[in-house]
Design a protein around this nucleic acid. Structure first.
Lengths: 234, 234
DNA sequence: CCAAAAGTGTTGAATGTACACCCATGG
DNA sequence: CCATGGGTGTACATTCAACACTTTTGG
């Protein structure tokens, strides 16, 4: 309709990196030392380089903040393009969701630290919305995929897994129901091993592991599923 | 790690526009008259202009192909950034999913027409994957949101709605179960009116409409839901 | 032998599919 | 009065939350 100049535009990748720390879901943020938004906290990321995909870009920039080998899962969230998202500066941003297992303890630079998602400091630009979108994506996928593998250690007890789910979902979870659901869906399986009880005693806890450590949908088509195939007798 | 030149890059918006036509889910495609991918079919879209958001961009480009007022729903799908997605040309693409109600009959240019998604011609670049992603998004959301409103006319009988769901999902749906589910979820409501029976007779069909025509999640948290609040025994 | 932690089983509610049955209309 | 399409109700299966009960350890 209205004639408009067409020209290339700068593009950045950002990451909402989540990890459960001290029973709370936390996001990795760094504090801006320079204008704009000086002093505000921001998501890690940076500009897209020539010949680079967005996924490579976010991995490259994340490497400056954490050991990307610790990333158990990475998926694209959404792309923001509001011309005013950076107060007049023109910059598109594609956000990713990254997950780090609870037992990883990546070293981070001085300007970077973890913040509980339910007690965030003032965030730069539209980063607060992106954190919210990342948490929402994680919470949804916890209920219909095996994405818990990306927050959990290699082996764990049901109690430990329950702490992780509780922190990520933000509400209580029954340990017995959790194991029932995840076992029936064949997301987790017993390792055969057990954990020694604590000083207060108690029955030793069996250890489990996720059957696969890549994303799988375990509850597809809750409703409006295809009709059952005629059960061939015999 | 590896030092790389950073510079702006061109960006396009693309749309997977879906409509049920003659009982089949169809996607809007136009045929490329010029190289590259000459003769191949492609998704509508075009380059992002200065000072424009991606959402504005896709609406502007779509306006050249269809009446955007017919679009009942538009949402972002994903952003593709593989440097080789255009055979060496560097161009990012953000894809959108657009839905058009069955009773809209938008005029389209000569180079543009509707193709059933289960019988696609050769598509340019990565457009086939984007069509698949759009269909998958639609099918998933049909089972846990009210997104059917964007494919259905303002009022409809259960039989008509069943045809739409069947075409979109790609499998049979029972009319009685469909109405049961959608009524219980309060997605649809009877209008009070009825449709005259056809020449073969039959009971007049009651007409319904969607309660709201904006996207709402109607089946959130199939599992791992928060504990029931203590019922305050009044 | 008792408290604490873990695991198992049962119950009841909700949801969904399949299917039988009843209703209204045109010929 | 019967065929045809539309609508309602019931039976059954599955899934899940809630909770009681049992098991295994440390003191």
């Amino acid at each position: 309709m209205t004639p408009q100049v067409i020209e290339p535009v700068s593009h950045e990748s950002l990451a909402v990196v989540l990890q459960v720390r001290e029973d709370r879901l936390c996001v990795l943020l760094w504090q801006r030392a320079q204008s704009p938004a000086r002093g505000c906290w921001a998501l890690p990321g940076g500009l897209l380089a020539v010949g680079e995909s967005l996924e490579s870009s976010i991995q490259r920039h994340l490497a400056a903040k954490v050991d990307v080998a610790e990333l158990a899962h990475l998926e694209q969230l959404e792309t923001r393009s509001d011309p005013s998202r950076l107060h007049g500066h023109r910059l598109l941003a594609t956000a990713y969701l990254g997950l780090i297992p609870i037992d990883a303890e990546p070293a981070v630079p001085d300007d970077t630290c973890w913040h509980p998602v339910d007690a965030l400091p003032p965030l730069a630009f539209d980063h607060a919305e992106l954190v919210a979108a990342g948490c929402e994506r994680l919470r949804s996928k916890l209920s219909y995929t095996n994405i818990g593998f990306a927050l959990a250690p290699a082996t764990f007890t049901i109690s430990e897994l329950r702490e992780i789910y509780r922190a990520a979902l933000g509400h209580e979870i029954s340990a017995s129901n959790l194991s029932q659901v995840l076992l029936r869906r064949q997301e987790i399986t017993p390792t055969g091993g057990a954990r020694r009880p604590g000083p207060a005693g108690g029955r030793p806890a069996a250890t489990y592991r996720f059957c696969t450590r890549t994303l799988e949908v375990t509850d597809r088509f809750a409703v409006l599923r295809p009709p059952a195939p005629a059960t061939s007798g015999s």
